[in-house]
Structure formats: structure tokens, C-alpha cells
Design a binder for these strands. Sequence first.
DNA 1: ATTTGGCATAGATAAAATCTATATAGGTGA
DNA 2: TCACCTATATAGATTTTATCTATGCCAAAT
Lengths: 299, 299
Amino acid sequence: MNIQQLEYILAVDQFKSFSKAADYCHVTQATLSAMVKKLEEQLDIVIFDRKANPIATTENGREILIQAQQVVAHANALLSSSKAINQKVEGRVKIGVIPTIASSMLPLIMKYLVEKYPLLYLEIYEVTTNQLIKDLRSGKLDVGILSTPIASTEVETELLYVEDLYLYGHLTTGEKKLQKSALSQQRMFLLQEGHCLRDQIIQLCDLKKQKSLPANLSVESNTFDTLLNLVDEFSGLTVLPALYLDQMSEARKSHLIDLTDGALTREVSLAYYRPYAKWNILNRLKEEIAAKVNERLKS
Amino acid sequence: MNIQQLEYILAVDQFKSFSKAADYCHVTQATLSAMVKKLEEQLDIVIFDRKANPIATTENGREILIQAQQVVAHANALLSSSKAINQKVEGRVKIGVIPTIASSMLPLIMKYLVEKYPLLYLEIYEVTTNQLIKDLRSGKLDVGILSTPIASTEVETELLYVEDLYLYGHLTTGEKKLQKSALSQQRMFLLQEGHCLRDQIIQLCDLKKQKSLPANLSVESNTFDTLLNLVDEFSGLTVLPALYLDQMSEARKSHLIDLTDGALTREVSLAYYRPYAKWNILNRLKEEIAAKVNERLKS
DNA sequence: ATTTGGCATAGATAAAATCTATATAGGTGA
DNA sequence: TCACCTATATAGATTTTATCTATGCCAAAT
């Protein structure tokens, strides 16, 4: 017995005709006849009196049909539920975000999201990449937003957007341009140890023997704001993600420096450990963030 | 989506393990995995979090499982119903019986049946073969009991039992034995026109130019009882079905005459026009009658 | 680092559903 | 009563689906 066979007998009962029922079910009359017969044999009950004109449902068949109706109705309910579930964006989601993304991207997206999805409770945690991966695995977080690639193979990532990185600062020459190769000669102000953007920049710029701060001053900033103050005061360079520019004054924007040969970029991705725990919500978040950010980055 | 797939996910939810669920469902783990995956793809909902240990049901999956339970429960209810229906012997059945069977077989079976099946209402109509076939076709009767073979192709018959026919009467020679070929020489008392047993005997005994009653007396009986009285009075022969002997006095039984070469028999069968209208009841009647009569005929 | 338990996947096989074409039965009108 | 018409049943071929065996892969535990 299967649901399809039940649908077949419901159709025959409704149309009082095998051929009309077959049309309705989008199968040939031969198929429908065979399936009805098979069901009747399995149940050991003859459901239809084919000699009657129009076809009649037997007494036993009537009882079977009532139950068949139930089964099919519930099956259809299940299918509609599954569609409804996929539409639904509600509930609590714990999101871990690394600081450099939190300070640059979140302002752009959060207000929009909470207004569009009033039934969605977003809990945002600002954590480092390493902590984020741990928390994903332990289940403390449902999803992370971080910069890829990452070493972990256990955590899956999906690219949200690719963001340009901008140089900011004061060159001794007073120029507004710089070659990539010259980067390693510059005094570069970086975020604290643990920020992945720091590591990325060190790698990108090949900053091993970099000139840094005066020896009597050691500052490692946690925020771009502090970093910018340092750069302004001590004269040097730092690196900012594109989305952070939204928060900068026009005066400071004039201190952005172009790289003459290509650009620095970073990937920002969603990271899951259990991709499907809150699939519909996370999938929607992914779409919304990607759309909103890419629209912003184009302008 | 099909019922089996729903049973699979119910098992996984129950056992928190694909392989245990597979054992439970008597399929391999590979099959169950594939089917669960297929269902998840069709619903576009991931039901199980396979990374959890033990396996966890996702939030969405939980909602699906609740509905799956419903569907499966109703499907099982349908299957049990079908079994119950096949057991059930109740309701009203209109049975047509030809007179020679009514007077011989019914007394044996009726009391037994109505006591064994108190919910069964048997309506018995005594009608001729021709009328019986008409009434079956028109739906006035659900089933008939008659002597086969019959000419009609529209009515289906199922053999109930084969019954010996006995000769009864008084031979002029005083003997208790007769050859078949001598039958046509005897004065034979028959039932009225319309009784099929009459026609059968005429055919069996090749009674064309038979000696019958004195010309000034024309009696055609409707009942064996009358027939026997005629035979006793006018001296001659008649033919009785085996089951009628139950109702005969011992005195009369001594006037039974053996055929020296073989026996006369008739087939008694159930006749349906719509074989499945009351299948379970009719099928049970068939079994009961055949069993009871054959048991009687053997003794 | 290696083993182990458990799910996924690939490829082959078996089972079931479906189709086309045709037979057959029941009803209808000449 | 015969031929015709309509509707269901059946046979055989084809496609789809379910299932199995064998193996890969991953994460947890030793």
C-alpha cells in the first residue's frame, strides 16, 4: 500500500470512472487499473464494483475510502507544513562575529534584519576566530561570521562577500600612492594579537622586520578607532576594511592611500558546524547579508 | 514522499541511529540513509543532525516527525480495518434458492448459520432458476443457490457440492434395482414445469415417450412430499436429491431403488452477478454450506 | 597516531510503476 | 440479434525506484 494508490482510489470514487480518474491523476488508465487492482489484492478487499454503471463503491470499499481520505489528508498536511517551515524565519539564533567584521559590517545589516524579521531574536557575540570555531563546535553558537580561509576542516564556510582593504595613513613623502612592495618598509599599526586581520596583513604585506612604534611605546589596539588615532599621531599606516569607511569622517577619508598595483582584499564568510540546525534562518541571513553588503560595496 | 520513508524517519528518531533504525526496518543502513536523504531533499528540510552524537532531530525535523506519525498511524489503521472488514460477517443478504434445494438443503444449514452469525440477516426467497438469474442481474438478490450448469454467461457460479440423486418408487417387478437404460420405460412422476430438476431428469433419463399418469389425472407437483404420495398411490418412480432423505420416514426409505450402473447426480452452486458486492459474507456462506453439506453427505 | 563506530556514496541488481497496444465485456441502437 | 461503442482488463516492454554489497570518509576514543 502506498499513498499514491490511495489517491487513485479516491479519484475513482470521485469520478466514478477509471479512465477519468486516470486523467485526473496524470497516468494512463492501464496504470490506474493495475494499481487499484494491486491495492485491492493487498487489502483483500474489492473496493469498486466495476459492473455497475457508473462504477459503484462497495460497502467495504466505502470504509476503506474513508480511511484513505484520512491518510492522504495528513500526507498533504505534511507537505504543506514542509513548505511553511521553509518560509518561516523565527526563533533565536546565536551568532558569533569577529571584531573587525562586527565593527564594519554589523552596523549596516542589523537594524534592517531586526525590522524585517520581528520574530527573529538575534544574539550577537563578538569573539575571535579561534573562539568562534570552538563555540560553534560546542554548540554555544549557531553560526559564525569570520574571514576565510580558515584552517579548520570541521567547520563549513559559505562566502558572503569579498571586501577590499584600504590603506590609511600618512606617508613621509606626502604622497597618496604606494607600491605593494613598499609596504614592508612602512611603519604599520596593527590590531592586537588574536585578530585575524592582523595576521592577514602581516602575511599580505610581508611585515617581518617592520618599523613599528618607538621602543618606549607599545600599543596594540582593539579597535580601528584607536588605530586611526595612533596612525594620525605617530605617522604610519594601517589597514581598514571597506565597510568601515562608512563610519569615517570625510577628513580622515582624505588620508586613504591607493596601492598602485592591485588591491588587498579579504573574504567574509558564514561558518557553520551543524549546517542544518537552523537551516532556514541561516540561509535567509546569508542571502540578506550578501545582498545588502554587495549593494553597499558597489556604491 | 511515501509511507515507507516516513516509517524510516520515525525509526531513526526512535533509535537515534541510522544503523539501528535500518535493522528495525529490515533494510540495510545504506538503503535507509538513501531514503531519508531523498525525503529530506523532497521536503527541502534536513530532519536529522547527523553530526550530533547521538543523532539529533532538528527543530524542523521535529515538526515533520509529528506529522509523519499521524500519517503512519492512519495508514496502519487502514490496514487493520481491512483485516477487520474481512472478518466481519454481518448485514443483510438476499438469497434466492430454487425450490428443490430449498426443501432439501436449507433445513440442514439455516439454524446453524443464524445462530453462528447473529449479526447476519438472511432473507431467503424461493424462486425458479430463471427468475433467480433475473433477480441477480437486477440487484433484487445478492446471491443465488441453484443447480449447475446454467446457460447464462453473465452470472458466475461457484460449486458448493455435488449431490447424488436417488430413485424412489415401486417397481412392478418388486425389485430394488434398476438399469439406467430401463429408466425410460418407467412411469416417472415429475415436478412442475419450471423446476430445473424436472428438466434435468428428463434429460438424464431420456424420458420422451414416458408412461405417466392415467389420462384422466394430471398432477404436477410442487413438492417432493406430494410427489412421494403420488408415487406411493399410483405406483411409479420419482427422483429425490440426497439431502431430502433426511426428511423421509424410515418406511419410505425402504422404497429407494439402486441404479445398477452408476449414479445420477446434480451440482449445486452459488451464483453471483456482482461477485464482490458482499464478498466476505458470501464467501463465508459458501465455505459454511460446503462444509456442512459435505459432512452430511459423507455420512 | 591508529583504530573504531557510524553515516554517506557508488555501482549493480531487483522490484515496482508506468506506458503502449490490444483484448474483452457490457450496454446501446439499428 | 448483431454490430458498434465505451470502458476496463491484460500483456509485454520500458522506465523509475528501492534495495543491496562494498567501500569511502569522518569524527571520537584509545
